[in-house]
Amino acid sequence: MSTLIISGSPHIHTDQSVQKIMMGVIYALIPAFLVSIYFFGLDALLLTVVSVASCMLFEYLIQKYLIKGEITITDGSAVITGILLAFNVPSNLPIWIIIIGAFVSIGIAKMAFGGLGKNIFNPALVGRVFLLLSFPVQMTSWPVPRPLFMPQLTDAVTGPTALGILKEGLGAGKSLEELLPQLPTYVNDLMGNQGGSLGEVSAIALLIGAAYLFYKKIITWHIPVAYLGSAFIFAAILHLINPSLYITPFFHLITGGMILGVFYMATDMVSSPMSPRGMLIFGFGCGIITMLIRIWGSYPEGVSFAILLMNAVTPLINRGFKPARFG
């Protein structure tokens, strides 16, 4: 007979673990990853691999030599940060820039706060915004998608994103009717045949992954619904007021980093609120800020900033919006 073990109840445990949750997110990102390889070729593959590898390496080095603590690179969170960081940059980004991004993501946004679970901001987004501000040229020259095994229709190497076309055109005083033909069709938006960061182009692939996340109960409906809902309503109201100046809300939902941000980054467990009501507030805030930046801000895209801003108020939301108590 072995020595009896004594511990407090409960004595059984769910088969869920941090690793399994992280692996679930990684699986969910695979369709979008494949689409990006299809449209952007080996650049996308290389960039993602380097990003993941450098995130894991930085985490390892910091834990081993700076913190001198437990090494946790196998929990999968650094892998996700690496993938999301790569997904948020153009596929022709020089390799050395993404390595800097990985360092900022892991070193500054995650480990400096105490590692997994302690960070206030989504690490991948911090890395992305850091790169956007530091290397604006490289970060905003979007390669034109060149589907594998397809004849090339254009000689252009880089082109603007849909949101970029819109912002620049409206800024130059053109009307929406003039701009519409230049924008990618909805089919291309959904499939991913458009300019943009390598992981954000295909709404369909991202939605397939999101469906998997819901099926595995890794994310709940609160943040995505509140986020998409508030952004949609906001854009719809403006569109109804002046259809010639404000584009239809559907366009906003499937372009830019919206789907990627809503399902994969706003729902990041660590940096989002914990009670259902808090999640709704969080999603609502993200949606409104995103639309404010897209429509009136100087950047064509606002998802990253919106999520980071709401990340900053998450502790307040957690304090202010408690779950419904029993009794």
Binding site: T3, L4, I5, I6, S7, G8
Partner: peptide, 21 residues
């Protein structure tokens, strides 16, 4: 030791739980 305690390392909790290892 006769038993193995498995839990957070505080005497206060272990004391509530049983007589000790």
């Amino acid at each position: 030791s006769k038993y193995r305690f498995d839990g957070p390392a505080t005497c206060f909790f272990a004391h509530q739980l049983f007589s000790g290892e």
